[in-house]
Each structure stands twice: as C-alpha cells, then as structure tokens.
Design a protein around this nucleic acid. Structure first.
Lengths: 143, 143
DNA sequence: CAGCGCAACTGGAATCATTCCAGTTTAAGG
DNA sequence: CCTTAAACTGGAATGATTCCAGTTGCGCTG
C-alpha cells in the first residue's frame, strides 16, 4: 500500500536511496530502531531475530555500521553504556542520560542553533561536530 | 579556603585533604596524571610501575576510582577510546578529540558560562551536568 | 609505641561489547 | 540467467574494565 503522499517512506526506499542493497536484516534493523527509541545493538539483535529467525551477531553489527555510515542511523555512545542507535539524523540534537538507569531522552539545542559549535580555543584542531550530553536522573530514578 | 599562598600543594596534602590514606600508588598516580595530560589507565599503570616497581592493574583502577570519587581527578570517556584522567577539576571545561589519532585538548566553555546547561526540554530529568565534546582533526592529522 | 581494624593492594579469572577471520550465500546489474 | 561484489554465518579473539578471595599495611586507639 503506497499512497500518493510520500509521507510513508518505506525502509526499502531509504536503503535504495542510500545506494545500499535491500536485505531482510537491514529492513528489519531499520524498523527495529524506529520502533524502540535509542535501541542498543543487542535490542536490535533480539528484535530482528524475533522477526526473521536466525540472524548472526555479526550481521547486526555490520548492518548497523552500514546504516550509520549511510546516515540512515545515528550512533550515540554514552560513557559506560553500550552504543545506541536512533533514526533522527542530521538535526544535531543532543541527549540526556540517566546516571542511574541509563534511560535516554532527546534534547534540542538550547541556545537556538549551534552555539557550542565554536570552541573558544581550538588548539589548531579542525572542529567538525560538537556533541552535548546532559547527565542527571530520569523521572523514575529521581523519585 | 587555603590561608596562605598554597604555592606547592603536594600530592600528600591533596590526599590527606580529601580524607584519603596516603599510599605510594596513590601519590605516584596523582603525579603521573599531573605530568601527562589526559593519561589513560594504562599510561598511569606504566608510569607508576616505572616509579615503584610492581603494582597491580587492580591497584591502579582502584586508585583512579578513589581519586575520581574524591574529585582529585576527573575522568573523561570519549566514545571509542579508553577512559582518560586529568587534574583540572571543578571548572566544567570541555574537550576536543581527534577522530583520527585520539589526541585530546582542553576547551573552555565558549559562550561565557554554562549556556548549554539548560536543555530546552528536560523530559522531567533532573539535570546535573552538561558535557560537551568537540570532534575533529588535530593539527597533525589534518595536515 | 604496640596492636588492631579496615582500607588498600595482589594476581588471576571473568565479563561485556565489539571486532576479526575464513568460508558461504544472495541481491542486483549485465 | 549468470556473475560477482556485497552481505551474512558462526566461532574465536580482543581490550578495557571489573569481580573475587586472600594478603598487606596505614594510621587510629589504647
């Protein structure tokens, strides 16, 4: 069912649009990440296996890398936690991580637009991106 | 508050001031971190062993944790790199990391003071700290 | 200034996320 | 179809860090 409106972009379209082969593990992985916000590689593995049966650990890591390189996914790696993946890409948003349970929330940049992108002294580095991570306690853990 | 000019604060003073026992591995670890900016646990291990002879891996991790908890050290954990430790604590400065070689530089907050500390929407989280990491290429790697 | 208790340390094994490897399967272009 | 590079399998390896159980020693108390 592909209605006329381009509202529903299928995983298949996304993959083809990025010049990637359309395979069952990739489609399933894209769906899995879209459904559960900030899924870990292990979450994706479980999800994909539930849908397809046997899928190797390596396949999931390969897929996640390919999708991340193609900018269909964004990888976030909070210190002390396994990497997580999300579908929101290209909007330079940030994250808030619960120190207690590891829960993650999305946060738009607070001061309008990329204020943090310009370090006062860049030590001669060529700066490409600025990543902001807020640490605190989620509603459940602060109770 | 330190009464007179604390020109040379010894590692021993720092440890005692934090209510920690003064032991050879701790003193050596503090010195090691002070001498090499952004040292890894492994750097500290080598350095401490060079000075003291046999020191266990565990001792170094224990010491680094104790000193970090006591706020004598700050731990930074860039995604994909082993943790690093530094002596500059309490001033909420940030870091710039080379995507190629992992080199790290210190960066003071660009917009005066803690502008990034207030997320636009905190999702009910209690925010404690904001951590900014710049990613790019160091002078050597961008050449 | 001698004993004692708890924090610190030893060394070896275990953990966990992730990657490496070598061989097999499969999507998609000619 | 037929070919082939890309994708996938399964098992072993890696590297930073932690767990564990037993030993040592700093520094307080008597």
């Amino acid at each position: 069912m592909t209605p006329t409106a381009p509202a529903a972009v299928t995983p298949e379209d996304l993959l083809r649009g990025a010049g990637l082969r359309v395979t069952a593990p990739r489609v399933a992985a894209l769906r899995a990440v879209g459904e559960s916000q900030h899924a870990t590689a292990d979450d994706v593995l479980s999800s994909v296996r539930a849908e397809l049966g046997t899928v190797s650990v390596q396949a999931v890591y390969d897929v996640l890398h390919a999708l991340t390189d193609a900018a269909l996914l964004r990888r976030i790696e909070p210190a002390g936690h396994p990497a997580r993946y999300e579908r929101r890409t290209g909007d330079n948003h940030h994250h808030i991580v619960c120190r207690s349970c590891g829960a993650i929330g999305d946060v738009d940049c607070s001061v309008g637009h990329a204020p943090c992108l310009t370090p006062s002294d860049d030590h001669g580095f060529v700066v490409e991106t600025a990543e902001v991570t807020y640490w605190g306690l989620c509603p459940d853990c602060s109770a």
